[in-house]
Structure formats: structure tokens, C-alpha cells
Amino acid sequence: MEYMGDCNVGDFFKWSVLTGSIFAVLLMMVSFDSPRENNSLEASANMHLINDTEIPILMYHHFTEIESETSSTTVTVERFEEHMSALKDAGYNTITDDQLYRFLHFDEALPEKPIMITMDDGYESNYIHAYPILKELGMNATIYLVVNDQEKTPGTIPHLTWEQTKEMYKAGVMDIQSHTFDSHYYIESETDEGPALITIGKNEDKEVYLERIRKDLTQSKKIIESQLQKEVVTITYPYGATNEDVINIAKETGYKLGITVQIGTNNSESSPFKLKRLNVINQYDGGTLLNKIEGLE
């Protein structure tokens, strides 16, 4: 063996073992630190994506096969199909109210280019016309029911039956949420009239008004949950009208989201009870609708 100066073989062996042990410890430290560093970078990247996510919510009501019946709240079946096909071809992915809730409250990631399709009031045309189109395209939407109008024709347009509603929900195509129990009308106040949800009636005081709203939101939620065996998380305000009293009652009665008709898109900084939408009209072809959505972002 080559001469090692003052170090004998035993000392050299001890020195080698010690050096190797130190090296092994350092290697383990690097190995343990790397995943944490990678996870941190990955979490940062995911948070960046969450913060950058914009979520348009489209608003529809009723569908018809007759062009002359279209209005600001009525779209032809042909046009609706064109809209949905345009969204799908452009890479949009439809999401549910539950997904939006988890995104806003828990930062859960959404699919790329998320979008919500919503339908107010609960018209039977949602079942007859919109449901088959969405099912064929592999998309979903949410219907917001005026619960007291179920199984009825309060005006000239019939509303959904519970049997139709259950079929769409169980198929995973239509989510079902609340548009109040029976507050989709205008009410007289002492000086004027306004949406029932935000107006103290001329024969009411503040306490009676608040109890009326609390009873309505509670009843709507309980009936839908009983009929469909699901949690109701969203209240969509009739006419888009809300105030702090309504929002506080919605929170107290178990709602997690509130949707208006204010024009705009939504992101991680949006108020969960003041979400924005875009009303879709029959004059928009597929390309126009995509441009309108992009203009919101």
C-alpha cells in the first residue's frame, strides 16, 4: 500500500467512512429538498392559472322553433344549436355550479376555457329543445327554477314538470338550482314598485319583508333538494335584483353563490354572491357570440 504520511491504514479507513457518510447525508438532503421545491413551483404555477381563469356565464330563458317569436329572452332552437357548436369548436368546456363554487371558495382548478350555460325560470322548452342538443354535444347547463311555477303555465309558456326535471338532472346534462320559490314579480311599495325580492311591500315593515324573503329562499331550496336529492348551492336573482339583505339571507339559508344579470365575466376575485352574466339573444350567430365572450374577458 502506498505510504500515507502520518495516517495509518486504520485512520484512513475511518476517514473514508466518515467522508462517505457526510456525502450520503448531503445527498439525502438534496433528494428530500427537491420534491418540496418542485411541489412549490407546481403549486405556484397552478395558482397562477387559477388567478388567470376567466369564467363567462351565458344566460338563456326560452327556446322556440318559430323565428317571429324570438325576443330578448327567446332564442330559436337552430340558433341555440349554432351557439353550442361554436363554443365546443372553440374549445370551451361547460362547468356546473358546484365546480364554480369549489373554484371560488377552495381554489379548485377548472378545465381549460371554462364556461357556464344557464337558463332562467324553468320553461318546458329547456327539456324539449335544449336538453337533446346539449346531450348530443356532451355539454351541460344549469336551469334555475321558479319552484312554484313547476307543472304550471303561469302565462303562455308551459314550465317543466318534476319528471322532466329529474330526467335531465339524472342524465348529468342539466344541473338544477333556485330562481326563488315565488318571487319573480314586481310588488308595490309605499312610493313605487319594484322586484319582489328587494322591495318592501306597501303593507310590510322591514321585519315582515325580511321574513318573506327568508321563507321564499328556504322553501325553494328545500323543495328542489327533496325532489332531486341534491344540494342547492345557487340562487339566481329574478331580474338580477339583489341587495345586502337578500345576500345575507341567502348565506344564512345555505346558498353558496348568487347570480345577477350584470354584464361581465368572473374570476377568482369575484364576489360569490354578485356573479355576472351575458344575456344571449337570437341576433348573435356563433361567431358573434364568441366575439362577445372574448370582449368580456
Rank of each mutant, 00 (worst) to 15 (best):
F273L: 07
N279E: 15
H62W: 13
L100D: 02
Y169M: 10
K166W: 05
I198W: 01
G295C: 05
L100A: 01
L18P: 06
K113W: 04
L257P: 08
G122I: 08
M28S: 14
K113P: 04
K113Q: 09
P158Y: 02
Y123H: 14
K215E: 14
P35N: 09
L137H: 00
L27V: 15
D205A: 05
L160K: 06
H179P: 09
E37N: 11
K256E: 10
V173M: 01
V75K: 09
D121K: 07
I57Y: 03
L275D: 03
I281A: 12
V17S: 07
I187S: 12
I143R: 05
E81R: 11
H61C: 08
H83Y: 04
E82T: 11
S16Q: 15
T118K: 03
Q177C: 00
Y60D: 10
K170V: 13
T165L: 10
L278V: 13
M119N: 13
E112S: 14
T70G: 07
F181A: 09
Q283S: 15
I55R: 02
M116C: 02
H61E: 04
T253R: 04
M28H: 10
G286N: 01
E294C: 02
V25T: 11
N46G: 01
S183T: 12
G10I: 15
N291D: 14
R79Y: 06
E188G: 07
D98Q: 11
E188D: 15
D33G: 14
A241P: 05
T70N: 06
E190S: 12
K274S: 11
T242H: 12
V147W: 04
F181D: 13
H48T: 11
A130W: 06
P272C: 03
T161P: 03
F80C: 09
N126S: 14
S268D: 06
S31I: 15
H83E: 08
I55M: 06
F63D: 07
T76F: 10
F12Q: 13
T180E: 04
T165C: 13
M168F: 03
A141Y: 10
V17Q: 09
W15Y: 15
L197M: 11
H129D: 15
T76I: 08
V173H: 01
A90G: 03
G287N: 13
A90P: 01
I198K: 06
K215G: 00
D205T: 10
K230M: 10
E124A: 14
A86T: 10
Y169N: 13
E69P: 05
N39R: 10
I128F: 10
N38C: 05
G254E: 00
L257R: 06
Y209C: 04
Y284F: 15
E252Y: 00
D285Y: 04
V17Y: 09
N248T: 11
D89V: 02
V246L: 02
F80I: 06
A45D: 05
F80V: 02
I249D: 00
L87I: 06
E54F: 07
E108T: 08
D120G: 07
H105T: 14
S34I: 14
N203P: 01
P114Q: 07
I176A: 07
F106Q: 14
M47W: 09
L289P: 01
S72I: 13
I247D: 05
Q227K: 15
D245F: 02
G155N: 10
E124V: 12
N267C: 05
K215M: 12
I198Q: 01
G258S: 08
T180D: 06
N282M: 04
E65L: 08
I259A: 07
M168K: 04
D285Q: 02
Y239P: 00
A196K: 12
I115Q: 09
E211I: 01
